[in-house]
């Protein structure tokens, strides 16, 4: 990743609450173009909530999320559609549409945003499947795929419109270590070869050390970011005991 790359996502003063319960308070960070950026933290610290606020599924109480300069929090109608067409999302359980085969899943978004002829759309869908290593599986239904294949298909769908940013919610969840490592390899490949920015929510240390350029670590008690930086540096140099324990896989007494 280029150290001088421009910021493609800016999260400014985000506070998220469910009714009276504040989940995250005053969160600020930036993600650079082409970076593999990981949001991590213990269970229940608000990682997925933060991700959802960045893709307009949750409205924060205050703050801005600038995606390529446009605020997704306040965007509506066509403006929101424009922002959403520039991002892709892979959900924790893939969220492929069960009534459609994989090609149809990928073509759906192409049908909505382009006027390409059907054969062109199918070609693009197959190209995406090739990149994620699922060539030949296009006409299978999601129920016929294994967990790892579903995640790959979901990444292929997220890539349908050549997005600049892909958000991944717990990509390794429910996968065996080998499949999870293959998925990490794919993410790294896509990031390096296509300069796609990845924002990943995970707490799997192997994945973090394997792919993350930079991480932020959320804390459940302070509801804020307690560490930012390269995971290796944080492991070796962080003075925060909770961060040290997390990166060194020690049981935590808080």
């Amino acid at each position: 990743m280029d150290d001088n790359a421009k910021s493609i996502i800016k999260v400014e003063n985000i506070t998220i609450a469910y009714d009276d319960f504040v989940v995250l308070k005053d969160i600020n960070f930036e993600v650079k173009q082409g970076e593999i950026f990981v949001i991590l933290g213990g269970s229940g610290c608000g990682k997925s909530t933060l991700l959802k606020s960045m893709i307009s599924l949750i409205k924060p109480v205050t703050g801005k999320v600038l995606i390529d300069g446009k605020d997704i929090v306040t965007a509506q109608g066509n403006e929101l559609r424009d922002i959403l067409s520039g991002i892709g999302v892979m959900y924790q359980n893939s969220a492929l549409f069960g009534s459609m085969n994989i090609i149809e899943n990928i073509c759906l978004v192409l049908e909505e945003f382009t006027n390409l002829p059907k054969d062109a759309m199918e070609l693009i869908a197959n190209m995406r499947l090739k990149v994620v290593g699922l060539e030949g599986a296009g006409y299978k239904m999601p129920s016929e795929l294994s967990g790892g294949m579903k995640k790959r298909a979901a990444i292929a769908r997220a890539m349908a419109l050549d997005p600049k940013i892909i958000f991944l919610d717990e990509p390794g969840a429910g996968l065996d270590p080998i499949t999870s490592a293959q998925l990490d390899e794919l993410i790294r490949k896509l990031s390096r070869s296509l300069n796609i920015t990845f924002v990943i929510v995970t707490h799997e240390l192997d994945s973090i050390f394997a792919i993350a350029d930079r991480v932020i670590m959320l804390d459940k008690e302070t509801k804020s970011i307690i560490a930012t930086g390269n995971p290796n540096e944080l492991r070796d140099k962080s003075t925060n005991p909770w961060v040290k324990q997390f990166f060194n896989r020690q049981a935590v007494e808080k």
Binding site: L84, V89, Y91, A95, E112
Partner: peptide, 16 residues
């Protein structure tokens, strides 16, 4: 079921 499987969220973030 689509809501529980996050398919509705997926539609929203796909701009549909």
């Amino acid at each position: 079921t689509m809501k529980i499987n996050e398919e509705v969220d997926a539609l929203t973030t796909m701009g549909l």
